[in-house]
């Protein structure tokens, strides 16, 4: 790809032709504050936080500004600073100050932007504070929609449109009353929302937040256990529990995307109904037994039914290694090719 050279704050950078100034900066490790930008989405230019000065005369947002050879960008020009600071101050003045109890505390793009532009108590005090009082839409079992925290970056709307092509949400009402809502502004579960949670995963604040979001103590890279697409996931673990699932952006299959089952359907793992001990039928009733007892009973029985009297049904749900051993067991130990599984269902 053709490269162009541009200067950002005195630093010469090479950037792909066709990329934007913000992309070029971020790709080169330079932070330009931004809120409504998301690498998966077409730049929208709505938050106006990423303003820069171009060639010493024009103010422009950097997220939609194509790089040009010889372009000179300033991110710290006084006018840029003033506009950016007012914009962020306006957002903060209309945002609840409940950071410590917020699920996105310390992982919040608004916090990041606010601290970068240097919001102070003094400057904020000048503003008329008002936080939108709208009921939280808690109809979805997996996530809540809290409009008071929404910065209207539109990332959720664009995710649902550009990536998911579901269009369950869009802007409703206008001006300061604008919110993200569904057709007819009904609860999200009464829309065509598929609960994939892609918007929740991308929300820069906690306007869209999982109902339960314990922070994991560690994450384990794995593969989703549902359909045959094989999405890469990161299992969030805390103690002995799987507490969350994230899409693996490095996985070539899903590049971070997940569906409702993949993202939220993990609670069966620690479900109290799980079988935790072998069961053996005694007097017509299944009762707990030790592994030794159970396996000996199986071994004894199987030993008597080798060959045609035996069949094994392996599973499309277990690993290759599990399946390999089952077929090996059937063929080598049970001496029959009577092995199949539910591939046809």
């Amino acid at each position: 790809m053709k490269k162009v050279t541009l200067t950002i704050d005195g630093l010469q950078l090479r950037a792909d032709e066709g990329s934007t100034v913000l992309q070029a900066a971020l790709a080169n490790g330079l932070y330009i504050p931004n809120l409504c930008n998301h690498p998966d989405l077409v730049p929208a230019g709505l938050c106006r936080v990423c303003v820069v000065k171009v060639d010493d005369w024009k103010i422009s947002i950097s997220c939609k500004l194509p790089v040009k050879e010889g372009m000179v960008i300033s991110t710290e020009d006084p006018e840029v600073q003033r506009i950016r600071k007012s914009t962020v101050e306006l957002l903060v003045a209309n945002h609840p100050m409940t950071c410590l109890t917020c699920s996105r505390d310390a992982n919040c793009e608004l916090q990041r932007v606010a601290s970068y532009v240097g919001i102070t108590q003094e400057s904020l005090k000048r503003y008329r504070r008002s936080v939108r009082q709208l009921p939280i839409d808690s109809s979805n079992p997996f996530f809540d929609i809290d409009h008071s925290k929404c910065v209207l970056c539109g990332i959720c709307v664009r995710t649902c449109d550009e990536l998911q092509n579901i269009n369950a949400i869009d802007y409703v009402r206008r001006g300061v009353h604008t919110t993200v809502g569904t057709l007819g502004n009904k609860p999200i579960t009464q829309s065509c929302c598929e609960s994939c949670g892609e918007c929740v995963a991308r929300c820069p604040v906690a306007a869209l937040a999982p109902k339960e979001s314990p922070i994991s103590m560690r994450e384990v890279k794995s593969v989703c256990t549902y359909c045959g697409v094989g999405c890469g996931i990161l299992l969030g673990v805390r103690g002995e529990k799987v507490v969350g699932v994230r899409g693996d952006r490095d996985n070539p299959v899903n590049r971070g995307s997940l569906c409702v089952k993949g993202r939220y359907g993990f609670k069966f793992i620690n479900h109290p109904d799980r079988l935790t001990t072998p069961l053996v039928r005694k007097d017509g009733v299944l009762v707990p037994a030790s592994w030794d007892e159970a396996l000996e009973r199986v071994a004894a029985n199987f030993s008597e039914h080798k060959g045609e009297q035996f069949a094994a049904l392996a599973s499309a749900r277990i690993t290759n290694e599990d399946n390999y051993l089952i077929q090996k067991f059937t063929r080598a130990v049970m001496q029959t090719n009577n092995i199949d599984h539910c591939a046809r269902l």
């Binding site: 230019g45 936080v49 306006l90 003045a93 539109g154 802007y171």
Partner: peptide
């Protein structure tokens, strides 16, 4: 203008509201 702002960008949506709130005060 506050009522008629389309609401998509921050300066217009919240700026006109803040200006209006101050003027009302």
């Amino acid at each position: 203008t506050e009522i008629e702002s389309c609401g998509q960008c921050v300066p217009c949506r919240l700026g006109t509201k803040q200006l209006l709130d101050i003027l009302k005060d």
